[in-house]
Amino acid sequence: MIKPKILVIEDDPAITNLIRTTLDTQAYQYHTAKTGAEALLDAVSYNADVIILDLGLPDMDGIEIIRKVRGWSKVPIIVVSARSEDLDKVEALDAGADDYLTKPFSIEEFLARLRVALRRSQTEDSNSQAPVTHYQNGDLKIDYVAGCAYLNEEEIHLTPIEYKLLTVLAKNTGKVLTHNYILKEVWGSSFEADIPSLRVFMATLRKKIEENPSDPAYIQTHIGVGYRMIKR
């Protein structure tokens, strides 16, 4: 069985060693880079399944690397950074990162985020072979052709906005989506940055798909940043 390939872009030796040791325990293949210049070359040549990226590199800001990689690749990018402000997270995610983990982090959480990114990478690879007509995540199903959603085999009666919200989240399962990204995808280029209204629509959607909306199993809130569809 071919193990996934991970590209680690980090200039702190201690963090690099921690990540390397963690990946060794899971028998993942990996390659490390210490600078932005090395990272961009490796992103092209190594053909990684997931990129782990620190933002504070000595020669280039990690946001620039995200934008450059997104110019030609959809490979999942997990940011691992000491920058903990919401604005930093939003900037990285809007640039194209899939996830954001703040240092210091637990090994268990790191591996969980990595598994989600790998599943997303594998799903995109398989979906590229044929058009996607259905979505399944636990007991939640979407029939894209019919424009219907189901929970436990029963149809969920959604408004057009709720259905659009659900499909945007579903098509990006495991990825943190910022408020602005969701607003643009659902309301189009003429959207107004009306985050309070988005929260209202998300709350009504949760009531229809979550057994316990206060403890959601599908739609996770990232306070100050956005939302993520959890892989079940």
Rank of each mutant, 00 (worst) to 15 (best):
D99F: 07
I78G: 07
I77L: 05
E108Q: 13
R70F: 01
S121A: 15
F105V: 02
D99A: 09
S73H: 02
G96H: 05
Y100V: 10
E91G: 02
D88E: 14
N152R: 14
E124W: 10
H134A: 11
E154R: 14
P160G: 01
T159N: 01
T159Q: 01
K141P: 00
K103E: 12
I107V: 15
Y135H: 12
Y135E: 01
D86H: 15
H134K: 15
I142S: 03
I77E: 02
R70D: 04
T133Q: 11
E153A: 13
W72D: 13
A149V: 10
V90A: 03
V132R: 13
R120H: 15
L87R: 14
E155W: 01
E124F: 10
A95M: 07
P131S: 05
I77G: 07
H134M: 12
S81H: 05
R120Q: 12
L114N: 07
A95E: 07
T159M: 00
D94Y: 04
V80N: 09
L118N: 00
L118P: 00
I107G: 04
A146F: 01
V90R: 08
Q122K: 13
A146K: 15
I107E: 12
D125I: 14
S84F: 06
Y150F: 15
T123D: 06
S106P: 01
L158S: 03
Y144P: 00
N152D: 14
D125W: 09
T133F: 03
S106L: 08
D143G: 08
V79F: 00
L111S: 03
I156L: 11
A130F: 07
A112M: 09
L118F: 00
N152F: 04
Y150I: 01
